[in-house]
């Protein structure tokens, strides 16, 4: 069975998604998400013993391209929608004490 949705899980998912949610919203989402999960849980009633696991919705494989350079955007075009730019760089609020993976 699917794990049930409680307030802690909603808060945790909100943090992972960088969403700020109020306590009222947490309670509301517990109800809403639980109903969605219950609905999806209907799938568990289907017998899948003899069904291959599906890893992709499209029945297509091996869409590949040759390793040939194509023109990139100019730096001006690349930065055209940037809220802030400086000397060809995107400018973002200072990143502190975190690292990429």
């Amino acid at each position: 069975m699917t794990k049930s949705i409680d307030a802690d899980m909603v808060r945790r998912v909100a943090i992972l998604a960088r969403l700020r949610v109020s306590e009222d919203e947490v309670q509301r989402y517990v109800g809403q998400l639980s109903r969605i999960f219950d609905y999806v849980d209907l799938l568990n009633e289907v017998n899948t013993d003899n069904v291959e696991p599906l890893t992709h919705a499209l029945p297509v494989t091996n869409v590949l391209r040759e390793d040939v350079v194509r023109p990139s955007l100019s730096s001006e075009q690349a930065l055209a929608n940037a809220p802030q730019a400086d000397r060809g760089f995107f400018v973002v609020p200072k990143v502190l004490d975190q690292e990429s993976s």
Binding site: V68, G88, F89
Partner: peptide, 27 residues
Amino acid sequence: RTQTKMFCGCGLSFDAPPNSHVCPVCL
């Protein structure tokens, strides 16, 4: 050691001017 990026046709560069080897895919 490819000529282009993993999922788009932008060339690889080490010390090119910033954001000169980018396209809508890798952006």
